[in-house]
Design a protein around this nucleic acid. Structure first.
Length: 270
DNA sequence: ATGTCGTGAAGGTCACGA
């Protein structure tokens, strides 16, 4: 069978539930991982997901900020939420899907890494310090738990564009939070806590521009095309041979009242 | 190129985070 997994920073799931509907009707992912749902669990539009064909939904929300969710056509087991940096933020959600009863299950981790504020100096910007600490804790925990030792996937808005071709201008963004060397280094340590494989870059060469986010502030996001690849899909090395394709659904950025992030889809063939 | 969004608590707009 083919398992299609999507990840999308939706920037308010309640405001954009109709965009979620349009996306899943056109792309029919088996599992959709959302970030920035921005609502309490009691406010989550659960019945909308049920009507869209996703009877299994795991949520980790909070009032107004952050929040992650996993909606699935297949049963979700082992639902778990980890807190990072003792902040009480809803930034992680894990669940297991079993695409093929004859195979080992796949563990899925959905992350929303802190954005980090504007000033790229942890000594004067507590939000940037939090982002760096979050990455350190992520690497330590993922390594200690050996998450990549069995079939596993990490998705989410990691809020870092690590490669030069992950941003519209490497030079211009070297001191812009999301592309600073210290963040890129720490994200590299998270990746190396695996072995994890950057699934998106299996399909687009490292030298080729690839974006998942375009600022709301551009007059014309498509014309200026000053994007960044902030959203990621990593698979354990054991799953890499199962990779069967990847798309960034950039057209969604042009939909009415869009999220500033586009969904990323990855296909796995079992 | 400091511009545009979403939320919440007010209170008919602003602060904050992104």
């Amino acid at each position: 069978m083919r398992l299609t997994i999507a990840t999308w920073n939706i920037n308010s799931v309640r405001l954009r539930i109709n965009l979620v509907a349009r996306f899943v009707e056109e792309w029919a992912p088996d599992v959709i991982c959302l970030q920035e749902t921005k609502c309490r669990d009691s406010e989550f539009p659960l019945s909308s997901f049920h009507k869209l064909g996703y009877p299994h939904v795991a949520i980790n929300g909070q009032k107004g900020y952050h929040g992650v969710a996993i909606a699935s056509k297949l049963p979700l087991t082992g639902i778990d939420r980890r807190g990072f940096c003792e902040k009480g933020d809803a930034r992680h959600l894990a669940a297991t899907v079993t695409p093929d009863a004859a195979r080992a299950p796949v563990r899925l981790h959905n992350f929303y890494v802190p954005a980090g504020g504007d000033e790229p100096d942890p000594l004067i910007n507590p939000k940037f310090a939090h982002k760096l600490a979050f990455l350190d804790e992520m690497a330590a925990w993922m390594g200690a738990e050996t998450l990549a030792a069995s079939d596993a996937i990490v998705v989410g808005d990691l809020n870092i564009a690590p490669l030069e071709a992950d941003v519209w201008s490497h030079k211009a963004l070297l001191s812009v939070v999301s592309h600073t060397p210290i963040e890129v280094e720490k994200l590299g340590l998270v990746l190396a806590s695996g072995p994890w494989v950057d699934a998106m870059r299996r399909y687009v060469p490292a030298e080729e521009k690839l974006y998942t986010w375009w600022s709301y502030r551009a007059r014309d996001w498509a014309l200026s095309n000053r994007g960044r690849r902030l959203d990621h899909v990593w698979v354990s090395e054991s799953l890499a041979p199962r990779l069967g394709g990847m798309q960034v659904v950039a057209e969604s950025r042009g939909w009415e009242r869009p999220s500033d992030h586009a969904p990323v889809l990855v296909h796995l063939d079992f």
